[in-house]
Amino acid sequence: MKRSPILGAYAVAYLLFLYGPILILPLFAFNDSRIVAFPLSGFTTQWFGEMWADANLRKALGNSLIIALSTATISTALGIFAARSSVRYRWPGKAVVMGMIMVPLVLPEMIVAMALLVVLLTIGVPLSIFTIILGHVLICMPFAVAILTSAFQSLDKSLEEAALDLGETQISTFQLIVLPLVMPGILSAFLITFTISIDEFIIANFLGKGDPILSVYIFGQFRFPAKVPSMLALGTLLVLFSICMLAIAEYFRRRGIAKTGGKDSGGFL
């Protein structure tokens, strides 16, 4: 490898820029001052207590978990159908249909949210946690489809034929061969969609009826300077949680590739 000190220094600076704000989270979450500014004044865990004492936060967390679990389950299930169909079968109109399913990836989220909102209001569907789930599934499904498509693609078609050849039916082949081999992909799709749903703001803000949702709650609280330290405490926990989920998802994705004897061809994006 060639060594280039200038590029190396730039890379470090870039990572500092990327991680700077995230490193500030724990720094000031444990800082014994309500004002978020240097110099640091001492160690405290009071912000974590203050954060947890807020009943609204606990309610928001509960709602967010319901939304994220439902979203992850539904979008992963729909993703399995879409990925299986597009990888394994040839059918006319595939490009158009798959394009439509993936389009939320390249559409500003605000437009998706507003279009959905207008229709829901017009046909008189009352806004609730359920409507947030509807919107979240829409934007999470493309991620699930992308992850699952690569999982199904690394599955050798002749494995299924071998199972059929050895006397199994289509259904038992799916259970005995396909499902176990794509399971890491399914788990990783579930974790990723869960993480996206927990963090999502725009749909949670506009398609809900005012029930507290984690991201909306954080958005509101940051407007009050007095609440910022406890939000930093909450942010610290959320970032830790996200990184754990990601690491687990990446672990499963790699194990899936190792299992099927494929080659690693990149990460989630």
Partner: peptide, 23 residues
């Protein structure tokens, strides 16, 4: 390296934006 670069993307967008407000 790619993992390091992508991690921040997966943390809450609202929190990241809010942090710049305090910064």
């Amino acid at each position: 390296w790619l993992f390091l670069i992508t991690i921040p993307f997966w943390t809450s967008y609202v929190i990241r934006v809010s942090l710049w407000r305090t910064i």
